[in-house]
Computed example of a mutant assay.
Amino acid sequence: MADFATSEELKARLDWTLDADEERIATAALEDASDLARYHAGRDWPDAASAPRLVRTLVLKACKRYMTNPSGYVQSRAGDETLGWNDTQGENAGTVYYTDDEQKLLAEIGGRKPGLVSAEVSAWGSVCRPMVAGLVPVAQSARGSKPFPLFSDEVEPW
């Protein structure tokens, strides 16, 4: 599986020149971000060129976020050597990750729409019978097997 972005595209988005070790980390970050994009989208594209451009943009955004702050710090002070992490990133701190909004966007790109879904439910072995307006169907073995009126109508009152 090909990565959705190249290291040259990532280097163009960074403010500094990468050394050999950072290039190795950037290559691994692009692989991780591409795998995560496939996971969140719920699909795979045959090659990187066939994927929507927004997937490439999100991969580069996640990689830039990681390369800029690989340890996941949210607070840093130079005076007393204070460093801090935030619990909102949780297990994603210090890794390549997508924000909740990016995950939702990738899911929509992949064709998964969030929301409620209704599914028809029926009993095992049930038989669909035509409904007559205002009448409740009765089991065949019941006496008379005639539908029971639920409410009156203009043609056949109680």
Rank of each mutant, 00 (worst) to 15 (best):
M131F: 10
K64T: 12
T99G: 05
A49T: 12
Q89P: 00
R56S: 03
L105N: 03
R38W: 02
L106C: 09
P130Y: 09
G134L: 08
P157C: 06
K61D: 13
A37F: 06
L105Y: 02
G144K: 07
L58F: 11
D15Q: 05
L105C: 11
A119Y: 14
S152Y: 12
L60V: 02
Q103G: 14
P46E: 15
A142M: 11
A37N: 13
E23D: 11
W45H: 06
L105W: 01
S7E: 02
A139Q: 06
D101P: 04
V155M: 07
P70W: 07
E120Q: 12
A5Q: 00
L106F: 05
V96N: 04
N92Q: 11
L150I: 05
V127S: 08
G84D: 01
G110Y: 03
R56H: 02
P147L: 05
D21F: 08
S76M: 09
A49L: 12
V121E: 09
V121N: 05
S34R: 02
E120F: 14
P70S: 11
A29K: 00
Y66M: 13
W16H: 07
W16S: 07
A78T: 07
L54G: 03
R53Q: 05
A12R: 06
R38E: 15
G111C: 04
K113R: 13
D35M: 05
D32Q: 15
M131L: 13
S71W: 06
D87Q: 10
P114N: 08
A12L: 04
S7H: 01
A119S: 13
L116G: 15
R53I: 03
A33G: 11
T95F: 14
G111L: 02
G84V: 04
T57M: 01
P46H: 14
L14D: 00
G111K: 07
D80N: 10
P46T: 11
S152M: 09
L58Q: 03
A123D: 09
A78N: 09
E91S: 12
E8L: 00
A48Y: 01
R112C: 11
V59W: 01
P149R: 06
T88G: 10
C128S: 14
P114F: 13
